[in-house]
Design a protein around this nucleic acid. Structure first.
Lengths: 218, 218
DNA sequence: TGTTGCAAGGGGAAAATTCCCCTTTTTTAT
DNA sequence: ATAAAAAAGGGGAATTTTCCCCTTGCAACA
């Protein structure tokens, strides 16, 4: 039994209609073939951890970012830890800077949007196999942007994040203070700090910021 | 030149990687073939309106819900008005009741999530062609649910909606009153009405509701 | 013709939010 | 070991938000 010389591709994506269609597209390229596909990161990792799959050939992983159970980032972190030599390309519909940065930090060799053309897609697969990475202009732009002003991204401490999440509710600051076992005055201090950092003036502004930046989800 | 007997399918979806892959999947079915694909509703409608395309054969349209320029709902409304005999299936990643209802109200023959399996997908295509509609259990569930309590959905007047949108900002009620050329007391009246309807107690609750229900977008 | 409903506006007060300036304690860094 | 941050908490006051109860004018309607 001869194994083909095509590059072995694994798809991890919960949108079955997409992943199963994509399989057709990839199989139509004459140097790639899809060997497995999984619906989320957990299924994929469980597969990799089975003894009989330890020395399986994996040339490229296409990893959806938004998945249930275990998402793209979580899976990428596991790969970085356990299979650092595997090459993965992240696939997503949204171009949020933060998640792009995090995926690449964790070893993603590329980040493609789902509105990519099949031509560019093929180019990306090929380039990652040959050169080890493929970044579109959008991603490169974000990367250089991050080098200039690394303090652009606002960081919050754990307590602050906790407070922000609780502030996105109908609770009063006093109730939040009780929940966090802190004085209302301490909470007031958190609030003032955060307002200053974000250049906002009201709790409404904080809620809008938190939702926009996915600190809380609607 | 003989035209094949396969059902002619048109795909309208801005995610090229998806639509071009889906084309492979559909073409692998032996009674369907993709004849055209478009990146958004506007492109699709412009194509339909060209004189030479007036009597083109269109057996099925696969319509993505979220698209730039002209989205699935807008396109569906145009179809209902101008090509009421065309059969369209809506495709989406999210299962929001409101949009599902609206699509079906405007004549969609089915509503599929993108995590559908290819088998069910094929079944849907076939059933819509043969029976004229295909509803998954999820969609049927929503439909019967809507019949029971048709007043479930809260309605707002124009002024109220306008107020809600403006309330989702750092403006004070006084500033909002100025913008809307009304007395702050009138605004206070709107607010109290809305709070009662929504069973909320704070402006934060209103903002959360507005975002959740897409009255404003983040 | 009266009644009902509702949009617009008001008085007044309690509660919550926002702001500024200050103290104490704990961590961290040099 | 000591100075400098950072975290926790406080006083007090101006604004804003929230709530309840009330008046007027207008339009629909039976």
């Amino acid at each position: 039994m001869k194994t083909s010389t095509k590059n072995k591709v694994i798809i991890v994506d919960d949108h079955l209609l997409f992943s199963q269609s994509l399989k057709f597209l990839i199989n139509s390229f004459n140097d790639f073939e899809v060997t497995h596909s999984f619906e989320n990161g957990k299924e994929f990792i469980q597969f990799l951890e089975q003894k009989e799959n330890l020395d399986i050939e994996v040339d490229l992983i296409l990893l959806d970012v938004n998945m249930p159970i275990l998402d793209g980032l979580g899976t990428m972190m596991w790969l970085k830890e356990n299979r650092p030599d595997y090459k993965a390309i992240a696939l997503s519909v949204n171009n949020e800077e933060d998640i792009i940065i995090k995926m690449i930090k964790n070893g993603a060799k590329g980040y493609l949007l789902k509105d990519t053309t099949p031509t560019i897609f093929y180019d990306a697969l090929k380039t990652v196999i040959e050169k080890g990475y493929f970044f579109t202009e959008m991603v490169s732009g974000i990367l250089v942007n991050r080098i200039d002003n690394k303090d652009k991204k606002l960081e919050f401490k754990e307590k602050e994040l906790d407070f922000i999440k609780r502030a996105c509710s109908e609770k009063t600051y006093k109730e939040i203070a009780d929940e966090m076992c802190l004085s209302p005055k301490t909470i007031d201090g958190y609030r003032e700090n955060i307002f200053a950092k974000l250049e906002i003036k009201t709790r409404i502004g904080l809620v809008l910021y938190a939702i926009k930046n996915k600190i809380v989800c609607v």
